[in-house]
Nucleic acid binder design. Structure first.
Lengths: 223, 223
DNA sequence: CTGCGATAAATTGTTGACAATAAGCAATCT
DNA sequence: AGATTGCTTATTGTCAACAATTTATCGCAG
């Protein structure tokens, strides 16, 4: 226990820890898009000085979670509808690629893991447990992307997902959407289990595009 | 003229300018992958203090050009063969998406621009002017990605291209490779001009995959 | 001559202070 | 009343110094 804390402190410098913490606070909703991030306040909050805070904010800027305007400071990024649409389109091909790569390399254990996740989601859908479904959905996506074996892809994908969390209407997902999403997952997993890269790309790509469509229809005048 | 300088100074803070400058120096080859970046030295070089230098390095870290190891500093990123391969794979789908999007929205003027670039490259190939070809090649890629209208895509794509510049064997391209590349470009441009999104995706995707293949065959034991 | 250990130098990590810029506010003028 | 100017306050931008850590150097024993 004491070792872990030590290791964490050792492996990660202050700005890196800060970056994770500020990211957590932003994505957790404590700040809203457009909000100003006061450097002194953040420094005070974590009991450190402004230097490391600024470094952390620079990293967050590069990953698209905050914007900087000179002499005015850092602000939580505000994602317009068209920007969110752009993010979705990029995310679609990245996820398609993840599906394709995974179909080429998945092991028997991997297939088992996928089927287990699907079974859990089946249960969540039947129980109409939306909260659980969202959690499992994220786990499924994360597993696919991580198991694809391409770290560049995984990193980019997760960055985009974080950016999309800034787009508030995100959680407007209803029962029918959950059902549709689940069906698409089944097609994805089948293609992977069949080790069919082309079909996997198609299924994964379409899944994200469909998710974008569901979001679009939930809001008005997207794009 | 005076206005532009004013505007630049106004819109860009020191760390942002520094980031561009350090990036230029790294990609220009003044530093090699694995090289240590001395903060004091960099600060001295630009006549400023270490604070802004560290902020700039944090940004470069997030864009994958430098790595940081705690208490040891920043180093120019060293891209392994398998990492380069991963970058290529992601770049392939991004470029495919760019081609698809451009095919959906290109204007008559845009098609003219593409044909002009192709004509120039024709001349470069005939003259066996490798240097000119590389330059036009980059211009073509940049135009396609920028004209796709998806800024997220453009940003990610350019980031990956920069990362690949860290992979030295990059410039091992010979006469035959130039010819093959040129033929692939023709297929791409035809698909865009025909406003055929699916064909454009395919052509653009395969072009980058082929480029990866040419690089692979030039080196030994890639991946 | 080589390997080891202690000391010295260099480098990074962090801080607090100061300068420059922007935002808030009150008094004045039209 | 509304706009404008000037002042006050808050915030960001930058710096130089100090603490902590790592790297280099040198002496020394085997």
């Amino acid at each position: 226990m004491t070792l872990t804390a030590f290791e964490i402190l050792r492996s990660s410098s202050l700005p890196i820890l800060l970056e994770q913490e500020i990211e957590r606070v932003i994505l957790g909703g404590q700040f809203s898009p457009g909000d100003h991030l006061n450097e002194k306040e953040l420094a005070l909050r974590f009991g450190i000085s402004r230097g490391p805070v600024r470094e952390a904010l620079r990293s967050l800027e590069a990953s698209g979670l905050v914007d900087q305007v000179p002499n005015r400071g850092f602000f939580v990024r505000r994602l317009s509808a068209s920007e969110a649409s752009n993010v979705y389109d990029v995310r679609s091909v990245l996820f398609g690629l993840a599906g394709k790569l995974l179909a080429e390399r998945i092991t028997g254990d991997g297939i088992e893991r996928l089927k287990q996740l699907m079974a859990d989601m089946d249960a969540a859908v039947l129980a109409d447990d939306f909260r659980l479904y969202v959690k499992l959905n994220f786990a499924l996506h994360e597993f696919i992307v991580a198991a694809s074996g391409n770290e560049v892809l995984a990193h980019q994908y997760l960055t985009l997902v974080k950016q999309l969390k800034l787009y508030r209407t995100h959680s407007l997902m209803l029962g029918e959407a959950m059902h549709a999403s689940h069906c698409e997952h089944q097609v994805m997993v089948d293609a992977i289990a069949a080790r069919d890269p082309a079909a996997a790309f198609e299924a994964h790509f379409k899944h994200v595009e469909a998710a974008k469509g569901r979001l679009t229809s939930a809001t008005t005048n997207l794009v």
